[in-house]
Nucleic acid binder design. Structure first.
Lengths: 341, 341
DNA sequence: AATAGCAATTGAAACGTTTCAATTAATTAC
DNA sequence: GTAATTAATTGAAACGTTTCAATTGCTATT
């Protein structure tokens, strides 16, 4: 394969000039530029990434470490469809700005810190995107300690942690409860995301505040944790329907979960939206195609992904102007919710 | 940050020995090993990836170039859910074997070859996974020409192209048509994937062969192309239902597409599985949760992803024993299909 | 015609590894 | 006790860039 040295020889200039042509073309004379350009094209030269990165200390790559569960290999955090949309946006935004995306996977059990250590200390990437934050997040603490460029999707409780992008989950739950009570619902259940992650904590705060402000009681039986699978939503819903006094409305952790819940409702001969109202979270594409179509809180994953990436690249490149974005999500009302019976 | 030189000094050995410790520990004496190990740990040393790769000519990274459409940014090839499962498997298998995954995105309009050229010539990756092949695929021709390690998901018509993994789409369609005719269907429509990709060609062969072997006619009106969105399935189904003599069974390009088709059917006051049979393709998780649950051809995306990755890594590492895998997909029968009326 | 000033170019050092021929130390065989 | 063999270690070259002080070649100014 061609090296910069060979290009230089063939073009009749020095390596320094070729390097300049590649990195700051305005510095090289038109005549040389043309000669170099020609040679580069005919030998289909591409600078060697490793050499570049070794010398210049940058990789033009951003890192992402999705947690893929090996036991339930279908699940990828945060929740499959949503993650893919986010990733697609990250990927295309990064490419647009001249960066690549490096994926390294973690499993739920393994300690993630060594992975981040390798990425940071081994200088594999210029910056990292952290997903699914926890209130006290070791990854964020580590990255902060190393002063390494990163942006997280989700907040944390670390005071130093400033660069994030997030959706206001508290607001989302308040809106939803407000909406359901306006339809006359009093018995509101919450099939909630597993405790531990920051977003589940934030949403819980919204839910409990809203319930209190409407003088509604939060029954233990009405709170069921679930993961992001249809099955877990289905199971949770069956538990709720087995209660002596089942809820008239259910807020769920995700659209997928809501689909499972609706499945359970239909199985019992009831109609979602008529007998029991169901609210999802995410507004994945399928939400509008399900029957009945799903009332849900929209998270703009595309926008989140591309803005997070843009923010990260800004930070990598030393521009720290805007360091946080909090989206206000929108409640999309469809047919899976209706007046309380 | 620590370098191998500093580690060597602190441990009282030469750089060569540290390098040996890192790469072939059996070559270094126990005493030295221990000293080095200690120093490495306390200075949290990680070898610099760029330096390593510059010298040793390998990156321990495999490349993947998904096509993300900017106009319809929700679509990622081959079809979102499926792609994510595939990617998750690739990612975790690669990580398991000590490789990372590098993502670079392409858009449908842009010429992909320069991207592959950069990856190959710039030695950004050790091998490439090619998705959604075409019969005459410039990417495959290029990689073959460069003698660069790659594995494709999908075959091509290039004679030299040996390393692939695929699902037997011809068999799948034959099975499906056989099944539908056994239920008494004669009027079978095919909402088929867009022409151009290899898999759509292969499936078409299966479909047409099967129709011929059952002495069934293929009506032009019954063949409608669609992409992987719900909407396109929905639109296609409406067109079929508007026909003077609508089909009694419909085979679709993907589960997502089938959901759209079922949506259209229900909207018309008909019942999928009773009035019209619908068959999907992929068997994504949602297929069993949809109502009615979807009869579909299962593609084992997880397995495909991890086997493709294993195959690629074998090739990268010089072991070429097994170079192709063709999965026989399974028709999963559920409620969206039934006897012809 | 000499000089100052600027634009363009040069060439060597440096980045942090791996590799390998050469060297040293330790062990075995007689 | 010496020679032969093996095991462990060393140190320098090389990988392909970028960077920057030094140099060269022009142009404009006097």
């Amino acid at each position: 394969m061609a090296t910069i040295k060979e290009i230089a020889q063939k073009a009749g200039v020095s390596v320094g000039t070729v390097s300049n042509y590649l990195n700051s073309p305005e510095k090289v004379a038109k005549k040389s530029s043309e000669a170099i350009q020609r040679v580069i094209e005919e030998s289909s030269y591409h600078p060697r990434a490793a050499a570049r990165s070794l010398k210049s200390d940058q990789t033009r790559t951003i890192g992402l470490v999705p947690v893929v569960s090996r036991e339930d290999p279908q699940s990828v955090e945060p929740s499959d469809n949503a993650f893919l949309e986010f990733l697609a946006a990250v990927n295309s935004t990064a490419t647009e700005k001249g960066y690549d995306v490096l994926l390294h996977s973690a499993t739920p059990k393994v300690d993630e810190i060594p992975i981040y250590e390798k990425l940071v200390v081994g200088k594999n990437v210029d910056g990292i995107l952290v997903l699914n934050t926890r209130p006290d997040d070791p990854r964020i603490n580590f990255l902060l300690k190393m002063k390494f460029p990163f942006v997280s999707f989700g907040r944390s409780e670390n005071k130093e942690h400033r660069a994030f992008i997030d959706v206001d989950g508290e607001y989302a739950l308040i809106e939803t409860v407000d909406y359901l009570t306006s339809l006359g619902h009093q018995l509101i259940a919450y099939i909630c995301p597993k405790k531990g992650s920051m977003f589940s904590k934030v949403r819980w705060e919204g839910f409990s505040k809203a319930m209190v402000s409407h003088n509604l009681e939060i029954y233990d039986d009405y709170i069921i944790e679930c993961d992001f699978s249809e099955t877990s939503g289905q199971v949770a819903m069956h538990l709720l329907l087995d209660l002596p006094n089942p809820p008239t409305a259910v807020i769920t952790a995700s659209d997928i979960c809501a689909f499972g819940a609706m499945h359970a409702i239909s199985t019992r001969g009831l109609t979602p939206g008529k007998d029991i109202s169901v609210v999802g979270f995410d507004n994945i594409r399928m939400a509008s195609h399900w029957q009945p179509s799903l009332t849900t809180i929209a998270q703009p994953f595309r926008k989140l992904g591309s803005q997070a990436t843009e923010m990260l690249i800004k930070i990598i490149e030393g521009d720290q102007t805007e360091t946080q974005i909090l989206f206000t999500p929108e409640l999309v009302i469809r047919q899976s919710t209706g007046p309380a019976k």
